[in-house]
Computed example of a mutant assay.
Amino acid sequence: MKLFAEMFTIAPGNKDHHVAIRCAVGVFVPLIILVLLGRTDLAIFASFGAFTGIYGRGEMHRKRLLIQVRAGSLMLLVILLATLSARAGQALGLSDTAATWAQVAATTLVAGACSLVIARWRHRPAGSLFHIFAFAAIASIPSQPPLWQCLLVSVLTTVFCLLIGISSRLVRSRRTPWATPEPVRLTPEEERAAGLEAVGYLVAAGLAGTLATLVGQWLGFGHNYWAMVAAVVPLVGRTTRHRVARGIQRIIGTVLGLILLAGVLLLHPVPWQTVLVIAVCQFGAEMFIARQYVLAQVFVTPLALSATLLAAPTAPELLLRDRIVETVIGAAVGIAVVVAPAVWRRIRANTAAQRLPA
């Protein structure tokens, strides 16, 4: 009961609306420009470039800028690798099955590598969830726009978010000292923890991607990378109980978010209205992501699927079906990866106790 109560407790706010406004504007402006230009095929690149604004949410201006420059640069590298990966698969003439498995393998490597980089940089949000999502979503696009256009949109969106991040310096009352503390190097224990965490991301993402692909091929589901994203959600947390709770919250929030999205889709929104939904959901997600994960997921789910529908229109009912199935698969794998070490330690302790002389 205590665990259940904690999952639905809302922590006090901490000027979250400041971050939420920055992130909402950061994604709305690039997307609405692309809609007006009739280039919604580039929307996914703007969406992931806008993730730059998520980092450094409560930091002073100079430190936030440094954090966002590094985070944005890493995301741009992931975007570049993803679109090159898609082009390489097409150039090699890989079958759909081979391309899917190659994507799972590449995304798994991205999960581990980006987790390690983010941990060493001490960035928050921790982990490589956004990088997994960006790499797999872009790499799975069958018809890639010209490379220079993909990169141009991504870079311009990233720069725009950097400017938004320091824009409040124009307001004297909001201006923070243009200083940043000396970077603190990871201790040997933290280095070891970062390495183990990266292994956890490799295992969780790889297992979830493999299982989701096998189930998808058997039952006709798609979007296996949603399972990979959901699988790493429980890896972020202070305790095993907290991590398990995040996995359960992911499932509950996704179900509620799908209900919300179904209601929105019944209105048959046109592209500019879809962009408005994305901006509102981005605002809601940032308002609650650090305070109440279930409520945040209610906004994250329609945010992710609306962006997918904008970039690559498809049957909405298939997206809703795939989202819940892949989320359940991924969350279950993530929870298993989190619980496995604790179970193993308990088994070893019991075995050692049994070997002691009576």
Rank of each mutant, 00 (worst) to 15 (best):
30 P>Q: 09
31 L>Q: 11
32 I>A: 04
33 I>P: 00
35 V>L: 05
38 G>W: 07
39 R>C: 00
39 R>E: 11
40 T>G: 12
43 A>K: 01
47 S>N: 09
47 S>K: 06
47 S>Q: 12
48 F>L: 02
54 I>N: 02
54 I>D: 00
60 M>D: 09
61 H>D: 05
61 H>C: 07
65 L>N: 04
66 L>M: 14
76 L>H: 06
78 V>E: 01
80 L>G: 07
81 L>F: 15
82 A>G: 05
86 A>D: 03
86 A>I: 05
86 A>W: 04
87 R>F: 09
95 S>I: 08
96 D>C: 07
97 T>E: 14
98 A>D: 14
100 T>M: 14
103 Q>A: 10
109 L>D: 05
109 L>H: 03
110 V>H: 01
111 A>G: 06
115 S>C: 15
119 A>I: 05
123 H>E: 14
124 R>T: 01
125 P>R: 04
125 P>Q: 08
128 S>W: 03
130 F>W: 13
131 H>Q: 15
131 H>I: 08
132 I>Y: 06
134 A>M: 10
134 A>P: 09
135 F>N: 04
136 A>T: 03
137 A>K: 12
138 I>M: 11
139 A>Y: 06
140 S>D: 12
140 S>V: 07
140 S>Y: 03
140 S>F: 02
141 I>V: 15
147 L>G: 08
148 W>N: 12
149 Q>I: 03
